[in-house]
Amino acid sequence: MTLTQTLIALGVLLVVLALALWRARRPWAPGPVWRVPWHLILALGLVLFLGLLAHLTSLVTGQPVRPRGLG
């Protein structure tokens, strides 16, 4: 991914995270049995955000991000 694509993905992900946070904070109302799992979407979005942030850091600095535990 290029720098532009990474920034666009981060922007879209921030919108999805804001929507998921807004919907997850709404009070529960009885209704249909199946509901969208907003907390799961929020958790997965945060993991993706951290990954994209690491990718953005590697693009800006020119140094690849190396995980500590994988030697």
Score class of each variant (00 low, 15 high):
L21Y: 12
V16R: 13
V12P: 08
V60D: 03
A18I: 13
V60P: 03
R68H: 13
W22Q: 08
L14Q: 14
T2K: 08
P27S: 06
P64I: 03
P30K: 06
R66G: 10
T4I: 15
S58V: 00
V33F: 12
L59T: 00
Q63R: 12
V65Y: 04
V65C: 04
Q5L: 12
F49I: 02
A9R: 08
L7R: 13
A29P: 05
L7W: 08
I8K: 13
V33K: 12
L46Y: 01
L13V: 00
T4E: 15
L42A: 07
P32A: 15
F49Q: 06
G62A: 00
A29V: 11
V33I: 12
V16E: 14
G31T: 03
P64M: 06
L70N: 08
G71K: 10
V60N: 01
R68T: 14
V47L: 08
W38F: 03
L17F: 02
V36F: 10
T4G: 14
H39R: 15
L40G: 10
I8V: 15
I41Q: 02
L53E: 04
W34K: 14
V65W: 05
P37L: 01
T4L: 15
T4A: 15
R25I: 04
L13T: 00
T57V: 15
P30Y: 04
R25K: 04
F49R: 06
L19I: 15
A43E: 06
V47R: 03
S58T: 00
R26Q: 10
L70T: 09
P27C: 05
G31K: 03
V12E: 15
T2D: 09
R26G: 07
W22R: 11
W28V: 11
M1H: 13
P32I: 14
L59Y: 00
T61D: 00
R26A: 08
T57E: 12
L14F: 10
R35I: 08
P67E: 11
L19T: 13
L10E: 05
L13F: 02
P64C: 04
T57H: 14
A9K: 07
L46A: 03
A18T: 12
R26F: 05
V16P: 09
L17E: 02
V47A: 07
V65H: 04
A43S: 08
L48V: 01
W22M: 09
I41T: 01
T57M: 14
